[in-house]
Design a protein around this nucleic acid. Structure first.
Lengths: 154, 154
DNA sequence: GTCGATGCAAACGATTTGCAGTGGA
DNA sequence: TCCACTGCAAATCGTTTGCATCGAC
């Protein structure tokens, strides 16, 4: 799968007259090897490359990340933590997130009825959706057990 | 209405042992006089106060804004424009947003079916929602008319 | 050989913070 | 009086940018 995806990128880069430089290949590979649903910051990605022996500047990491977001190979998220987080979208279905404000855990959800309804909302306004962001912030089940809320809120 | 709200704030501030200082009153007033659905940055708010003759520091504007967000009198939004935007929530129903990525226009929507479905999603995960953010980014009807997309995408 | 890509370091810009002085309660 | 609040200026910090050099094609 990573092989296949890597090949895809070569083509896409070529089509757009983008050069297949070493930094770009290393960054792309590293992202493709990422776990499904894993969220990483630009800095974390840079650090992992560095540990692997790659001496790539942060500027290049940011520039390549933007490139991959445009290619829809990566999604950029703002979970309100002061920095952007990225997620591999190659061979991954669309999904939205639940974010625990206590432990930072992130769960995914995907709901076609919600997608349909938001599509209707947009259509009604003559609006064409390019992308969307749907985030639910709160307390995950594990944090809820650790510190139960007052009875009347349970 | 502004009168009433102002009174409410006096009480709430008192309850929390917060002092009713001049900067806080001026900022609160300015926000209460804001149009329904208006989005303003901290800097814009500071500028408006300044033009009105109020010499309040930006630090205090930021600090008071955070206070009002906690009180749920104001909501903080990130529309991806590099700075936070704020919106008066006193005497305003909950709503989400459609953001035009061409002209920046922001439309509101409110859909109880979506709210219900997202509630079910959370419940299924044992997750308790504290707040959420649902944003649809794309092209508004007016920008669509100005630069129609290629036929096959229409 | 060209021109896009890279590294470096400096710039950026919104927001936050330390601290001494101020003024509500 | 007391301590929370304020103003000021400096600090923060993730991200972007200018520019000289490099290297993919």
């Amino acid at each position: 799968m990573a092989k296949h995806s890597a090949g895809e990128f070569q083509e896409r880069f070529h089509e757009k007259n983008l050069k297949l430089t070493h930094p770009r290949q290393a960054i792309t590979q590293k992202i493709l090897s990422t776990r499904a649903g894993e969220h990483f910051s630009a800095d974390e990605l840079w650090e992992r490359l560095r540990r692997k022996g790659e001496r790539i500047s942060k500027a290049t990491v940011y520039r390549t990340l933007h490139l991959l977001v445009e290619e829809k190979a990566v999604e950029e998220h703002d979970f309100g933590k002061g920095q952007k987080y990225y997620e591999r979208m190659v061979e991954r279905p669309h999904h939205d997130h639940l974010i625990c404000i206590h432990c930072g855990r992130i769960l995914e959800f995907e709901n076609s009825n919600i997608e349909r309804l938001q599509g209707e909302v947009a259509r009604r306004e003559g609006f064409i959706i390019r992308y969307h962001s749907h985030k639910l912030f709160g307390t995950c089940s594990s944090c809820r057990r650790k510190a139960p809320p007052p009875a009347r809120l349970r």
